[in-house]
């Protein structure tokens, strides 16, 4: 009885709490707010953040990860990961969180993998940076991890440089690198947008399995509402730096906000004959 209660408490305690997060960039005409008061909590679940370019979805992810450019200003009433206030941490403590407890996958593996290190070196490097293991153990675990992301010949890929593998393979290597330190929260910013549609689904299936097996929290950032809603449990829709609506992913058709509805409707669908396509009529009050 007491034990189950304790488990409940652990499960119900949110992994991430974000309250009134704001990110602003200085410009010639005064500061420009990219994120304007975003609040949400995340458990061990799959959360999607959807928006168009300039909606602040990527800046939200970067702010949580601590990768906001230094000239930007971040404020938040609360930004806590597993009960630790991230805003109070020093740069050094923040760095130790990064990679070990929070990891991030970026859109294009071409730009996020180091071109002069082999894939194997990069994965073992990540592991050795966060835990005290010998080179041999790190190598074994890297090979296991490459196998876990369904790379058929891990030993061969281990010794290759990023430019020698395809985009899909590079993104799998990236996932392997990010998950090897067993983070509790994974932020994926457009992880499959640079990939072909058929490869995209394979990579997502791998990500999906790993996230549920390891009980991680996932924030999936994307412009693709259809993809996000088919992958996540819950979706936040962002517009101009604010969350305009939160919907359960399987009840997307019940979305009420005109922006969300507009985003769903403006996509062409196979077998539907809508000419012209409905377009978004942007209202200034959505940004209020």
């Amino acid at each position: 009885m007491g034990e189950s209660h304790a488990t409940d408490a652990r499960l119900s305690k949110p992994l991430l709490e974000v309250e009134d997060l704001r990110v602003s960039f200085p410009s010639r005409n005064g500061p420009v707010e990219a994120v304007r008061g975003v609040s949400f909590t995340l458990g061990r679940e799959r959360l999607g953040i959807v928006g168009e370019s300039g909606s602040g979805k990527s800046q939200t992810g970067r702010a949580i990860m601590g990768l906001t450019p230094p000239h930007a200003r971040i404020t938040a009433r609360r930004l806590a990961f597993a009960g630790t206030d991230l805003m109070q941490l020093s740069a050094r403590e923040r760095r130790s969180f990064r990679g070990e407890r929070i990891a991030m996958i970026l859109q294009d593996p071409k730009y996020s993998l180091n071109p002069v290190m082999t894939i194997g070196q990069q994965i073992t490097e990540t592991l050795r940076a966060h835990s005290n293991v010998t080179r041999a153990v790190a190598r074994d675990r890297a090979l296991d991890m490459l196998e876990a992301v369904q790379i058929r010949d891990p030993a061969r890929i281990f010794g290759l440089y990023p430019h020698e593998v395809s985009g899909g393979m590079g993104q799998r290597a990236m996932i392997a690198m990010m998950l090897i330190a067993d983070p509790e929260l994974l932020i994926a910013d457009e992880p499959t947008s640079a990939l072909d549609v058929t490869v995209q689904l394979q990579v997502l299936a791998i990500l999906d399995r790993l996230v549920s097996e390891r009980g991680m929290g996932l924030i999936f950032i994307s412009h693709d509402l259809r993809l996000v809603s088919s992958f996540c449990d819950r979706v936040l829709v962002m517009y101009r730096g604010r969350i305009v609506e939160e919907v359960a992913a399987n009840r997307l058709n019940d979305a009420t906000h005109p922006y969300t509805r507009g985003l769903i409707n403006c996509l062409p669908k196979i077998g539907e004959d809508r000419h012209p396509l409905p377009v978004l009529d942007r209202r200034p009050e959505w940004a209020e």
Binding site: E52, S53, H223, D224, L225, G262, L263, C266, L267, P268, H275, P276, L277, P278, V279, L280
Partner: peptide, 15 residues
């Protein structure tokens, strides 16, 4: 392009 802009451009091309 963003999805909503895509719809506008596709409509323009059809027209």
């Amino acid at each position: 392009l963003d999805a909503s802009v895509q719809a506008e451009v596709l409509n323009l091309l059809e027209q």
